[in-house]
Design a protein around this nucleic acid. Structure first.
Length: 427
RNA sequence: GGUGAGGUGGCUGAGUGGUUGAAAGCAGCGCUUUGCUAAAGCGCCGUGCUCCAAAAGGGCACCGAGGGUUCGAAUCCCUCCCUCACCGCCA
């Protein structure tokens, strides 16, 4: 959520910056300004009447205590009370309207973000490693079938298309990767491990800005108004919602494993083959809550922390800086980390590291008390560290051997309990 | 799920209809005293919104949330949420 004061004071600047995302929010800006002006007008009238009422009511009290008649005043105040009721209703309706409008206006891109309409405007900022030399690489679906570590047919039987069922060594590999990543981030990168609820209230979803915009993509339980988390970003960032943190406690750094649930209406095709895009997937997520002065520094280190996973696994990847047109709704700046998938012959996004600045913090009233004792909004950041299915796919594709087995990178062997995944007769 | 008790400022905790935005204590900040530390004394010390070009300074709202009663509600009534305790059920 943007600061209404910024919109009020620099509407042209805000509109211009929003326009770089493509899709015009200018109408919304004009609308929110209109509502804001009206709201303040009504509130001022309302407050004058309330001041009158307070003053006269005190007089009534004083008169009564002196046993003087007060009926005249009472009649007068009752009349004021009616007007107040009217105005109060209008004021709160306007207030609600203003908030609803603000909730649907995207964040301003950071000034360093390249201007662009669509993904073609993104900029590769670095890459690491090299494509593995494989003559005719099988993709993860074929490998998974042969090795009996992935059973998409039966997953579909259980839950429909675009669900995953890992079996045997596949399930174990998934678990090994989760443990490996969480250990890395807690032991070497200083994150605190959290095991949060997988169901959260609507307020949390609004706080991290999945709602109201993306309601159609979320799974919800209507009867008790809970949502299945689309990412651990939601519970982790909301941990300190409605709190005022001590500056000495910043930055807060959290890591969590959760499943992620998404409707993802997208069409089937090569982009969605196998386990690349599914309705439920596992992810290890990193979240930081920082003071504003430090957030861009923290974005760099967060991205580096996520990259470290791929480096230790020896997987080729690149880091892409998203342009204004490809930026997520709440993000001011985002780096995507894309791992090389020999099977798809393409880079796959396994992490999206973003700085939301105070966009989420304003929605969730997440503040800190600075050294002067002033309350200020925190900045929030998050990034996957990393998303499992695509990592799984890239990993087995990259490390496939000519005999059809998969030789695991060193770092994973202890976690997995073996050096390689081989064909088995039975599952 | 049932019963009971409760939800007040950073914390503890008073307050059952009128100058209470809220006693008191703790913590915090400033000043004074002081060889250092400690202690003592004095003062300051919630948040949001709004008026004013702005500062200074006003005003309004907020005692879990939302309604209601009343001239006036932290205080009375209703609904909901949450916490705690016990019981039931259960991996």
């Amino acid at each position: 959520m943007l600061d209404i004061r910024l919109i009020r004071e620099k509407p042209d600047f805000v509109s211009e910056r929003l326009a770089t995302r493509g899709g015009s929010d200018e109408a919304k800006i004009a609308e929110v300004l209109r509502v804001d002006a009206e709201r303040r007008k009504i509130e001022t009238q309302l407050q004058r009447l309330q001041a009158d009422r307070n003053r006269l009511s005190k007089e009534i009290g004083a008169k009564r205590s002196r046993n003087e008649p007060s009926e005249e005043l009472e009649v007068q105040v009752r009349k004021i009370g009616d007007e107040i009721g009217d105005l109060a209703q209008r004021a709160s309706a306007l207030d609600q309207e203003q908030r609803n409008l603000l909730l649907e206006i995207a964040n301003l891109p950071h000034e360093s973000v390249p201007i662009g309409k669509d993904p073609s405007g993104n900029r590769v900022v670095r890459s690491w490693g090299e494509k593995p030399q494989l003559s005719d690489p099988a993709d993860h679906v074929a490998l998974g079938q042969k090795l009996k570590i992935l059973d998409l047919e039966r997953a579909a039987k259980l839950s429909g298309s675009d669900f995953i069922c890992f079996t045997g060594a596949g399930a174990r590999l998934e678990r090994a990767l989760i443990n490996f990543m969480i250990d890395l981030h807690t032991r070497e990168h200083g994150y605190t491990e959290i095991s949060p609820p997988f169901l959260v209230r609507r307020d949390c979803m609004i706080g991290t800005s999945q709602l109201p915009k993306l309601e159609a993509e979320m799974y919800g339980l209507e009867e008790n108004q809970l949502f299945l988390v689309p990412t651990a970003e939601v519970p982790l960032t909301n941990l300190h919602r409605d709190e005022i943190l001590n500056v000495a406690d910043l930055p807060r750094k959290f890591v969590a494993y959760t499943p992620c649930f998404r409707r993802e209406a997208g069409a089937a095709g090569r982009e969605t083959r196998g386990i690349i895009r599914v309705h439920q997937f596992d992810k290890v997520e990193l979240v930081k809550i920082t003071m504003p002065e430090k957030s861009y520094e923290e974005l760099e280190s967060l991205t580096a922390n996520a990259e470290r996973v791929l480096q230790l696994l020896g997987l080729h990847y690149r880091v892409v800086e998203l342009c204004t047109g490809d930026l997520g709704f709440g993000s001011a700046k985002t780096y995507d980390i894309e791992v090389w998938s020999p099977g798809q012959n393409a880079f796959l996004e396994v992490s999206s590291c973003s700085n939301f600045e105070d966009f989420q913090a304003r929605r969730m009233h997440l503040r800190f008390k600075d050294r002067d004792g002033k309350n200020r909004l925190c900045h929030t950041l998050n990034g996957s560290g990393l998303a499992l299915p695509r990592l799984f796919a890239a990993l087995i594709e990259s490390y496939q051997q000519s005999d059809g087995s998969v030789r695991l990178p060193e770092k994973l062997r202890d976690y997995f309990g073996a050096e390689k995944i081989e064909m088995t007769k039975h599952e």
